[in-house]
């Protein structure tokens, strides 16, 4: 009985479209915490930072719970918070990197990837990560959410707070750019 009740609550929390309690939020968070962490990690590339972001997103969701209008599922809402925070951190880091290279031109440059160096699976993953980092933030987030985390198109749109058409455009551009950048690696 207890199990059935909790299942109902959790299902309701993921598809809720009305007033939401903290218990429902906690249940939704427990279910999507792992995915949220991986999405954050894919965007910011730092375990500590990613874990902090997920925690921060949950705290923000708790604070803004009274204002949650239920226009999307709680999972999309939580993931949107995570993605927004992660993109903010990634943007700040990119600015810092640019400044560092501008002010310290002799600073170590990233090693360019060569076909020989990218033979193994680990090297291919590294090359893909590097190419993803060079994508514009929205394109990268859209590609990761759709293809690395396999979220439905509608949910990607809800997480990024844009229309499905915009997501499709982001995805097509991201794929085109990744194809060009990884041409050598693909062989």
């Amino acid at each position: 009985m207890g199990l059935e009740q909790s299942t109902i609550v959790v299902t309701g929390a993921l598809e809720a479209s009305g007033p939401t309690s903290e218990a429902e939020l906690a249940a939704a968070f427990a279910l999507c915490r792992e995915r949220a962490f991986w999405i954050a990690l894919d965007i910011v590339r730092d375990r500590e930072e990613a874990a902090d972001l997920v925690h921060e997103a949950y705290l923000r969701a708790q604070r803004s719970l009274p204002r949650f209008r239920g226009e999307c599922s709680l999972r999309s809402y939580l993931l949107r918070l995570v993605v927004n925070l992660a993109l903010k951190v990634a943007r700040a880091r990119r600015v810092r990197e640019r400044l560092r290279h501008l002010l310290l031109p002799w600073a170590e440059q990233r090693e360019p990837h060569t076909p020989e160096a990218c033979a193994s699976g680990a090297e291919r993953s590294r090359a893909l990560r590097a190419a993803l980092e060079r994508l514009p933030a929205k394109q990268r987030a859209a590609f990761l959410l759709r293809h690395a985390h396999e979220l439905p198109l509608a949910e990607v749109a809800a997480v990024l707070a844009v229309s499905e058409g915009t997501v499709k455009t982001h995805l097509a551009r991201a794929v085109e750019r990744l194809r060009r950048e990884l041409e050598e690696v693909r062989g």
Partner: peptide, 24 residues
Amino acid sequence: DLEWLRSEAAALPRPPVPEGPRRR
């Protein structure tokens, strides 16, 4: 190429999620 990208993206390593409450 898209098929290749999708398979590579899906195979990106997924490290375990840190347990316990976060310390800011």
